[in-house]
Design a protein around this nucleic acid. Structure first.
Lengths: 193, 193
DNA sequence: TTATGCTGTTAATCTACATTAAGTTTTCTA
DNA sequence: TAGAAAACTTAATGTAGATTAACAGCATAA
């Protein structure tokens, strides 16, 4: 198995001895997920956090009218999951599935807790990761509350430059919070972009 | 100074020796903030995270039309701040002010970094705090994207039961993302609540 | 005491975006 | 490689919530 993408990511924030690295790697699990397959469905208890190494994953909620609302996209190098369910180990509110054939590396929540105790440096690693996630959510919320659709689209393009073209438009529409019809009109009408 | 509320909060997640506790307390600063006074304004670099011990604080963004959008309320026992600015030590996008005469306990970002090195248990403490913040943001985002105004109001009442009555309605409107006029209509019209 | 200014209410009008529906193109997949 | 299923477009119509405006109740304050 090739864990290099994840290890590089870890080494950006902490350093590990050879033994620590081996121990960490021994806790990792790999899973391939085909397009449209689910990692988690609403009501599932998440096994633990997942790191994307190939493909594109996404998490979304489903409202009472059956409409999807994308919470996050995760290309390679990003983490994905229903944080509520991961942290509290209770049934979650999100669906997590693959938009393209994907591969993830994941840890059991129980192994993660063990890792925190055995190698406290991982407390630091995930503390930093958490900070970044909070900053991202704070930004998303500011945009969602205070920008019109066209500027939320621009924000999306800035956040996920690699996805802007590879993703079906309806996924983008769901992320920025408009219907596919409206996004289509917006992009084709006044100032073609 | 009375740090008991903050210390209790810390002890819920980690234990400290007497020395560690003294060292931690030596890094704390106290500040009283009168109603309508700012802790931070847009463009400021935040000094560090703040824990509310009295009153009610709030953070909000200002859109280009001059409308406020409340990101968070913080009654006693809650943390508040512009996470982007705190973490990156760059100019922030949020205003933080007091809705009622308040008192906060805060740390310099540089002291916090020192604390992480000197007492690694605080990595764990803030890792857990971060997880909770992410869960809260995830929930807020799900509501904002997938619920109509009346249910976002219900969510607000569940999240901040202590504030539902003490807060001016226009603050609540700004939090749930509608105009004060619309909230007033919603609460007084069909099914008075 | 009267001003001054917040806060909340009501109601008419307006608009960004949703819904519905039909047609076209692209892409899967058998 | 056909034929079904997605993905995208266009346009008519509908609506949740915004805007504007006028007024009433209460504060704080001179």
């Amino acid at each position: 198995m090739d864990f290099s993408l994840l290890l590089e990511h870890v080494f950006k924030h902490i350093t590990l001895t050879q033994e620590e690295q081996s121990y960490f790697v021994s806790l990792l699990n790999v899973r391939k997920i085909k397009k449209k397959q689910y990692l988690d469905q609403e009501g599932d208890i998440s096994k633990g956090p997942a790191f994307v190494t190939r493909g594109i994953m996404r998490s979304y909620s489903l409202d009472k009218n059956g409409f999807e609302h994308v919470i996050q996209f995760a290309p390679p190098g990003w983490w994905i999951g229903d944080m509520y369910s991961i942290v509290k180990q209770k049934p979650g509110r999100l669906y997590v599935d693959a938009i393209e054939d994907s591969e993830i590396v994941w840890l059991w929540k129980s192994d993660l807790d063990r890792l925190y105790s055995d190698i406290p440096k991982f407390e630091r690693f995930f503390r930093i990761l958490g900070e970044n996630a909070i900053v991202a959510f704070e930004n998303r919320l500011i945009s969602t509350l205070s920008l019109p659709a066209i500027e939320r689209y621009a924000q999306f393009c800035r956040l996920y430059p690699s996805l802007t073209e590879s993703l079906p438009q309806k996924q983008v529409a769901s992320y920025i919070g408009v219907t596919p019809e409206f996004l289509s009109k917006m992009l084709n009408s006044p100032a073609p972009k």
